[in-house]
Design a binder for these strands. Structure first.
Length: 896
DNA sequence: GAAATCACG
DNA sequence: ACGTACGTGATTTCC
């Protein structure tokens, strides 16, 4: 029987624990004055992660107290220097952390001259030799170098209870490196947190490229002379010693002389008495209560769980077999459920699937080779077999990964539930089913969340879980459809959202091709500018500080430099752009900070952020569009968000140069609705003045200015007047208030109020509609779009003025924003159909609220232009024309 | 894990 | 008098 050895990096986890609950720091103090936030989080970690693991051996390794006296300190004097002092509130918790480890039945170990890493490295190799399964838990990515087939490194992602598992395969997939190459990567790049340098100008990306080409450091230097002349080559040669020193610093020792061995690490579970004493001394009341409750349960023989599982009235779930599949293949209607181990279904592992109906029963399997079976393949691809499921877009993508094209979806409960009510929708099957009185165990409870996520070892448990979900989906359909009909939303579902799901699925799977080298080059240029700016800022400030820290920046600007405080936040001084722009004329440092902020944002979110999500298999970015999230009917985009790629500043906009067509001689083509929200407003309200402006294709903001400022039709409009009118138009769309407008324009509330009054006089039907929609919201509790998309406003009758006012503005905004969303969704479906019908190769890639982005062969451009713009401007028929503008070019940069 | 900031429509 | 413009997502700090 293979033994399980658990090795925990105490320092790094305790550190994470401290900051995971940092905001609780002041609240979590014992009467004796001891801070307990890290202890609390560490205890949660031990209970939720370690306890369920049931290791045979377990150790928590700690860094030696006399920190610097390791061989690394001898090798490089500045090793780990420049770190901030450990806060006393954290330090004082250390002795208790060690006690806690013991009470939970684990062992502590530390040794002079060694860091926790080295202890873990040495023991993991020993465990491996003994044939054990080794699990390392840490917050430090450096330890991934220890991963092997027998050694898994688990790294905390967020706090201490969400964990990512690094196997050699996963490391290869994520970094493109073997565990051993992780060391050489650090040899080349150095490590800023441990404060040692690598080769000059070599960062993450360059290192990766070099290692891909030369495999390791020795081989690289063996061939360095053959490299073609470049600055990088010179740097590599000049910094050879630095690189080898960094390699030594980065290498975790795996053969240290320890005074313990595996046999000393036996784990026999928590020691109740020790825990009780510890919790009492730390005043951990709830942990204590839980502990006592558990002791009671343990003595009780009747199993609560068993009683519960029998009470639910589900069909038994059987393992799928050939005979069952043959029967299922003949069914008209089936429910299907597939579970994955992560949200991102483009990359997640598929865990299990279930399929069935109430007549034939439900069948499940964890074996995805079933999808090589022709009977099952036909079933998935047969449009005549009606499927009931949860999240058709996800299932389409999962099937696509198995080379199948999902067809025949009849009921997508996720979509229907979203259309019925967006409020409080968490997109979780169990909670949405509960709205219909059907109670299922939540995935989060079944699998655990974050670090606790684990698939039960008993397959039957998993089959039951999925089978019951499938059965729920099967049963929910009729009632859910009935409610849709009551809402007059049947067409919205059948003709818009469901077909859109598949359009979006195709777009996601298609992906947007990205030139990594362009992003990398931008990243290097940005890095140079950023470090220059940093130097200048430090120079002017007369000290070094973390410019990213609003707290430190606030101290500098408002305490040391005594600049006027313009705005405060909940926690201190505001250093937001508006504030800094106002301060810029008074202190030259401020404009440097503004520039630094801008560039740092571009570098971290867009250059680094996007590079991190490029699919290495096809050099593309595959976002996920969330179709059931927003309260208005818009889409959102995650992992990464491709709906907020910079546009407004030239510096940021350059990011779009990296977004390119996926074939040579193709182009990026963009088409966007001009002023769609104001056109929708004009159409919905029927206001004659605003309609006229659009029907005559006038500049709407200029026309608004003419109306509000009483100018004649042919009188030129002053830029300032136009700017004001534009702000009022925006305000109208957002659900106008004099306060908001005055703030936006920097004018008095009185002036803002009079602008609004004049506006409503000039556009009387807009005013009438605003009043009417608010009244309707108060009466019905919801508002609707042109396609009967509904938004409930539970706070429309709130006593609290703020809440009620917010609901009223929402009542005015949602039909406008939501109807615009309806229109572009309809356009997307029609464009997709038209492209197919015309046999064009062009592919739709993105939707950005009022804009669609495509790639197409150069030769198709004219045809695609005509087709897309005409489909878009005739997507729906309004009493106001829709206008579409388009742009094309070799990259996304030019296509807007 | 909340708050601040900033990117988009 | 109340005090905010509408809808999103990602990164960073906190030390």
């Amino acid at each position: 029987m293979t033994k399980k050895l658990l090795l925990i990096d105490g320092n790094s986890l305790a550190f994470r624990a401290f900051y995971a609950m940092y905001q609780q720091l002041d609240r979590m103090v014992t009467p004796e004055g001891l801070h307990t936030n890290a202890l609390m989080a560490f205890n949660n970690f031990l209970e939720s992660i370690v306890l369920p693991m049931q290791p045979d051996f377990a150790l928590v390794a700690w860094d030696a107290k006399s920190g610097k006296e390791t061989f690394r300190g001898d090798l490089y004097a500045d090793y780990k220097s420049g770190r901030d002092k450990t806060p006393v509130e954290f330090k004082e918790q250390f002795p208790y952390l060690r006690e806690m480890v013991l009470a939970h039945g684990l062992h502590n170990y530390e040794q002079n001259g060694l860091e926790a890493d080295d202890i873990i490295g040495t023991l993991s190799r020993e465990g491996e030799k003994a044939g054990d399964d080794v699990i390392i838990i840490t917050g430090d990515q450096d330890l991934t170098q220890l991963a092997t087939d027998k050694v898994t490194v688990k790294i905390t992602k967020k706090g201490v209870t969400q964990i990512e598992e690094y196997t050699p395969a996963y490391i290869q997939e994520k970094f493109g490196l073997t565990p051993a190459q992780i060391i050489d990567k650090k040899a080349l790049t150095g490590d800023t947190s441990d404060n040692y340098p690598g080769v000059t100008k070599v960062g993450e990306k360059t290192a990766l490229k070099l290692l891909t080409e030369y495999h390791d450091l020795d081989n690289l230097y063996a061939h360095v002379d053959d490299m073609k002349k470049s600055k990088m080559k010179e740097n590599l040669i000049a910094d050879k010693e630095v690189a080898y020193r960094a390699q030594k610093l980065a290498t975790i020792i795996t053969d240290a002389d320890l005074s313990i061995s595996l046999d000393d690490l036996a784990y026999n579970g928590p020691k109740t008495k020790g825990l009780v004493e510890l919790f009492e001394s730390l005043h951990f009341k709830s942990a204590l209560a839980k502990l006592k409750a558990h002791q009671l349960v343990d003595q009780d023989d009747t199993s609560v769980e068993e009683a519960e599982s029998q009470s639910a009235n589900f069909h038994p779930v059987k393992e799928l077999d050939e005979a069952a599949l043959a029967d299922l293949a003949k069914a008209d209607t089936l429910a299907i459920q597939i579970d994955t181990d992560a949200d991102n279904y483009h990359t997640a592992d598929m865990l299990a699937f279930a399929i069935g109906n109430d007549d034939l029963g439900y069948f499940a399997s964890r074996d995805f080779t079933w999808f090589e079976n022709q009977t099952l393949r036909d079933l998935i691809e047969n449009p005549e077999q009606k499927l009931r499921l949860f999240n058709a877009k996800e299932v389409w993508v999962l099937m696509h990964r198995l080379d199948l094209t999902l067809a025949g979806v009849d009921f997508d409960f996720m979509l229907v539930a979203y259309l019925l009510d967006t409020v409080g929708n968490d997109n979780v099957l169990s909670t949405l089913a509960a709205r219909f009185g059907l109670y299922l165990p939540a995935d989060e409870d079944f699998y655990g969340k974050g670090a606790k996520f684990a698939v039960p070892t008993d397959d039957q448990e998993v089959y039951d879980h999925l089978g019951h979900k499938a059965e729920a989906l099967y049963g929910l359909r009729d009632k859910a459809f009935e409610e849709l009909a009551e809402h007059k939303q049947t067409a919205l579902y059948h003709d818009i959202e469901l077909p859109l799901s598949f359009v979006l699925a195709k777009m996601e799977a298609q992906g947007f091709a990205v030139k990594e080298d362009r992003l990398e080059k931008m990243g290097q240029e940005l890095d140079e500018k950023i470090s220059q700016l940093k130097e200048e800022i430090y120079q002017i400030a007369g000290e070094e500080f973390n410019i990213n820290s609003t707290k430190q920046l606030g101290t500098l600007l408002f305490e040391k430099m005594n600049l006027p405080v313009i705005k405060k936040t909940k926690t201190g001084y505001s250093t937001a752009v508006e504030v800094l722009e106002e301060l810029a004329p008074q202190a030259p440092i401020v404009s440097h900070i503004l520039e630094y902020r801008q560039l740092a944002k571009i570098k971290s979110t867009y250059v680094d952020g996007l590079l991190a999500v490029v699919d290495q298999a096809d050099q593309k970015i595959h976002t996920r569009f969330l179709q059931t999230l927003t309260q208005t009917g818009r889409l959102s985009s995650v992992d990464p968000n491709l709906q907020n790629i910079p546009m407004r500043t030239e510096e940021g906009r350059k990011i779009r140069h990296a977004f390119v067509p996926s074939h040579p001689n193709w182009l990026i083509f963009g088409a966007d609705y001009s002023q769609i929200e104001l056109r929708v407003l004009a159409a919905i309200t029927g206001d004659p003045n605003m309609k006229k402006a659009f029907m005559e294709d006038e500049d709407i903001h200029a026309e608004t200015a003419r109306a509000v400022f009483g100018l004649k039709a042919d009188e030129p409009v002053d830029a300032n007047h136009r700017r004001t009118a534009k702000a009022v138009n925006f305000g109208i769309v957002y659900g106008i208030s004099d306060f908001g407008l005055s703030k936006n324009l920097g004018i008095s509330r009185k002036d803002a109020k009079s602008f609004i009054e004049t506006y409503f006089k000039e556009f009387p039907k807009i005013h009438g509609w605003m009043e009417q929609i608010k009244e309707q919201a108060h009466k019905d509790g919801f508002v609707e779009t042109i396609e009967h998309r509904r938004r409930y406003l539970p706070e429309i009758n709130a006593k609290n003025f703020n809440r009620r006012s917010f609901a009223e503005r929402t009542a005015m905004n949602s039909p406008i924003q939501g109807s615009a969303a309806d229109i572009i969704k309809i356009a997307m479906i029609k464009v997709d159909q038209a492209l197919t019908k015309e046999g064009l190769q062009a592919k739709m890639l993105l939707q950005v609220h009022d804009e669609l982005v495509f790639e197409c062969p150069k030769e198709e451009l004219e045809q695609v232009r005509k087709l897309v713009t005409s489909v878009m401007d005739s997507a729906v028929s309004l009493s106001v024309p829709l206008k579409v503008e388009d742009h094309a070019g070799p990259t996304w940069y030019e296509a807007k």
